[in-house]
Design a protein around this nucleic acid. Structure first.
Lengths: 134, 134
DNA sequence: ATGCATTAATTGCTTGTGCATTGAATGCAT
DNA sequence: ATGCATTCAATGCACAAGCAATTAATGCAT
């Protein structure tokens, strides 16, 4: 693999990512007042309900999913809590930890936003939709 | 293509991007005191020398390459100028426009940083290097 | 039990980014 | 030539992100 190939692969990846994030950001913000990262966290929490009986997650467990620093995630969760989409609670077995779980409002908002996200992703990632992405 | 496939493709793309940017940021910063975006702009300028005889570019021409807003690019160029890597000059034919061109220091810094960038990209994008990325 | 290193999460601070606005220059229509 | 919409780049402002320091709790060694 030549340098040129590596670089062009990287630029393609990078441009693709930027385009998708930009679209997602606009659409999610406009239709659901959610940022991309906010949606991501709600998404992980919804997914996790299947795994965790009570739907509660440690902050660090969420960090693994979204590519954010610890501090960014902490503030993001604070914003989500302020918006009423999640709740934070102490975990009894390790009192340093904090449990995060969805509220009804959070579940609802996520379910509303999900189709929007899927639509944008399809527009960019569906093989044949490259031409129809108007 | 199922929703699940689209979403997992997106997550893979996203995680890949985040990992590469993170590594690039660290390595470029540590070894060359350059941010990823800063390097990108220098890189475009160097490339462009082949195309433009005098190596001068309009700000908006650079904007096409890097995925940044116009204002972000404006400030980025200001930072690069302050660091002595580029110069801004009026363009005579359209006095709204601003020409940007590399200085010697900019060319040198870019040539020093280039191998670092290539190394990081290879580590992530070379097929066989997945295991050897220590 | 006490001290010390470690881990979880939050907070202070700085910086980079985007949106909207501004200021300047251009081009076009009248 | 004059007026007006448009374009280029810079700037005010608000906000999100990362790093480093902080606070609180845990675990381990003595």
């Amino acid at each position: 693999m030549t340098d040129t190939e590596v670089v062009s692969t990287w630029r393609e990846l990078s441009a693709r990512h930027a385009a998708i994030v930009s679209d997602l950001e606009r659409e999610l913000q406009e239709h659901h007042e959610l940022g991309v990262s906010e949606f991501e966290v709600l998404d992980r929490l919804v997914e996790g309900i299947c795994l965790s009986p009570n739907g509660k997650f440690r902050v660090q467990e969420l960090a693994a999913g979204v590519s954010l620093s610890q501090s960014a995630l902490s503030r993001l969760i604070a914003r989500l809590e302020k918006s009423g989409f999640v709740m934070r609670s102490m975990c009894s077995d390790d009192r340093r930890g904090v449990f995060v779980n969805l509220t009804d409002a959070g579940r609802i908002r996520h379910s509303e936003a999900l189709p929007t996200q899927r639509r944008v992703l399809r527009a960019h990632l569906e093989p044949e939709s490259a031409a129809t992405t108007g």
